[in-house]
């Protein structure tokens, strides 16, 4: 057949099919794998979802957001408040909606900041929410922590898997959409993007709140596994750093990069922490350094190197 369009579509659908098949295979995990691997995979999927949603916004725009823990925490508190009266999928959506609303409000005032300034602002948001929740809890509720209803590890697993699937699809569609193209344009040069008529604020705001939806939803699901939470646990800045690290490690310019980064990171950590509890940080740190030095464009950069398209396409080191 001489129809190039169809050929192209078929070619494109191959990786699509592979990923779909992998996800479907993972869905049967509770049937054939051990009970613990279901628990472990929920954690891996949590990291994958967080780093993927991080990369959805930060990847193309170059805005490094450390607000992941803030939105994750909002989801956690959603479950703490409503966990006893709502089913898990409803909690998931509620957590996502609350996160998006907050992200929208925060984004509206902060997205004019650039570079590290934006990063610091988002980091501050985590601490601010932590202390705000702590203050309201101690002042009005006379408590510090809350117990969270439990739904069982298999339910948690399927909810997380559904979330990841939806997120992969959303991220895929976003990259293809006009908004996605506009985000990349912003990453290359925000001023130029504005010049050619892109409403940069609206585009950034949309992507920022969209990406925070998944973070909140993930928080709402995972909280049910933790049984007890307090502001320090819910708003833990490690949950901002880890997904960012995983995404950069995996490579943010590929759709599946963050997912690969999350899987490699989480599996590596699990092995080290259970086998070498007193040495795991040294080994983990050393592997991280070596990995960056020997594969600077992330895990996915190993597969196919393509010329990086960045705003500052200037060599840094000549001496």
């Amino acid at each position: 057949m001489g129809n190039p369009g169809l050929r192209l579509d078929m070619k494109k659908s191959v990786p699509f099919a592979i990923v779909a098949a992998a996800l479907a295979a993972v869905a049967f995990l509770p049937r054939f794998a051990s009970a613990y691997s279901v628990v472990f995979c929920s954690s891996v999927i949590m990291y994958a979802a967080l780093s993927l949603s991080y990369a959805m916004f930060s990847g193309p725009t170059g805005y490094v957001s450390l607000a992941t823990a803030a939105f994750f925490g909002v989801g956690i508190y959603t479950s703490a408040f409503f966990g006893k009266s709502l089913p898990l999928p409803a909690l998931m959506i509620a957590g996502g909606v609350f996160s998006s609303v907050i992200a929208f409000a925060v984004g509206a005032i902060t997205l004019r900041l650039r570079g590290v300034y934006f990063t610091i602002f988002t980091f501050g948001l985590v601490e601010l929410l932590k202390h705000f929740v702590l203050w309201t809890e101690t002042t009005f509720a006379g408590t510090r922590g809350r117990t969270v209803a439990s739904f069982g590890s298999v339910t948690v697993f399927y909810c997380m898997l559904a979330l990841l699937t939806a997120l992969l699809l959303a991220a895929f569609l976003l990259r293809r959409s006009r908004v996605g193209k506009a985000l990349s344009a912003i990453g290359e040069s925000e001023d130029a993007a504005a010049h050619i008529g892109i409403n940069t604020t609206a585009v950034k705001l949309l992507a920022f709140s969209l990406s925070s939806f998944a973070m909140g939803a993930a928080g709402a699901v995972m909280a049910t596994r933790w049984a007890y939470i307090d502001p320090g646990i819910a708003f833990n800045s490690l949950m901002s750093f880890m997904p960012a690290l995983m995404a950069i490690f995996g490579g943010t310019d590929r759709l599946l990069g963050p997912v690969a980064g999350a899987i490699v990171f989480a599996a590596l950590e699990e092995q080290l922490i259970t086998r070498f509890p007193s040495l795991y940080m040294i080994i983990f740190g050393a592997i991280m350094i070596a990995a960056i030095l020997f594969m600077p464009s992330g895990v996915t950069g190993l597969i196919r190197r393509r010329p990086a398209k960045r705003k500052e396409d200037v060599p840094v080191g000549d001496s």
Partner: peptide
């Protein structure tokens, strides 16, 4: 094939993850 290497790798990783976690057993 090279184009799909990433997807394949990912699929492999996804399937391998439980095995990795169980490596200690």
């Amino acid at each position: 094939m090279k184009k799909h290497a990433l997807a394949l790798l990912l699929a492999l990783l996804l399937l391998l993850a439980p095995a990795l976690s169980a490596g200690c057993a």
